[in-house]
Simulated assay, not measured.
Amino acid sequence: MTDHGQIPTPAGPFDMISAGDPGSPPVLLLHGFPQSALEWEHQVAVLGHAGRHAVAFDQRGYSPGVRPDDVLDYRMEELVGDVLAVTDALGWSEFDLVGHDWGAAVAWNVAASFPERVRTLTALSVPHPGAMGAAIREDEDQHLRSRYMQAFQDRSVEKRMLADGAEALRRIFEWRVPESSIDEYISRLREPGALTAALNWYRAMRHNPIPDVVSVPTMYVWSTEDAAIGSTAALACEKWVTGPYRFEMVQDVSHWLPEEAPDLVTGLILDHTR
Rank of each mutant, 00 (worst) to 15 (best):
34 P>E: 10
94 E>R: 15
27 V>L: 00
3 D>M: 09
248 E>V: 15
124 L>V: 07
136 I>S: 03
141 D>Y: 04
135 A>I: 12
246 R>C: 09
191 E>C: 01
201 W>A: 05
236 A>N: 05
205 M>R: 08
110 V>Y: 11
126 V>L: 13
254 S>E: 03
114 F>P: 04
189 L>N: 00
210 I>H: 07
137 R>I: 07
269 I>E: 10
60 R>M: 08
137 R>C: 06
271 D>I: 10
27 V>E: 05
79 L>D: 04
236 A>F: 12
73 D>E: 15
250 V>Q: 04
18 S>Q: 14
226 D>S: 02
200 N>R: 04
129 P>N: 06
107 A>L: 09
84 L>K: 09
266 T>C: 08
72 L>R: 14
189 L>Q: 06
176 R>D: 06
265 V>Y: 02
99 G>P: 01
127 P>Y: 02
4 H>N: 00
60 R>W: 01
218 T>A: 01
240 W>K: 09
92 W>Q: 07
155 R>S: 14
165 G>Y: 08
10 P>I: 04
209 P>R: 12
274 R>F: 08
95 F>N: 03
209 P>E: 04
154 D>W: 12
166 A>D: 08
253 V>E: 09
157 V>I: 15
122 T>H: 00
125 S>E: 00
209 P>I: 04
147 R>N: 12
126 V>F: 05
51 G>R: 11
236 A>D: 05
241 V>K: 00
120 T>G: 09
19 A>W: 05
56 A>W: 02
154 D>T: 13
200 N>D: 12
247 F>C: 13
42 H>K: 11
7 I>T: 07
29 L>C: 08
237 C>A: 15
227 A>R: 15
160 R>C: 07
88 D>V: 07
260 E>C: 06
237 C>Q: 07
3 D>Q: 15
268 L>F: 06
242 T>S: 15
259 E>A: 03
138 E>I: 04
38 L>F: 13
129 P>C: 14
234 A>V: 04
254 S>K: 05
1 M>H: 07
268 L>N: 03
185 Y>D: 04
212 D>L: 14
228 A>R: 06
209 P>T: 05
151 A>L: 14
163 A>M: 12
231 S>K: 12
92 W>D: 09
195 L>I: 11
203 R>S: 06
44 V>W: 03
204 A>T: 10
252 D>A: 14
213 V>P: 02
216 V>C: 13
116 E>W: 01
85 A>D: 14
10 P>L: 08
105 A>K: 00
243 G>P: 10
199 L>Y: 13
71 V>H: 08
205 M>A: 15
147 R>D: 06
207 H>E: 13
259 E>N: 03
133 G>Y: 01
136 I>R: 15
25 P>W: 11
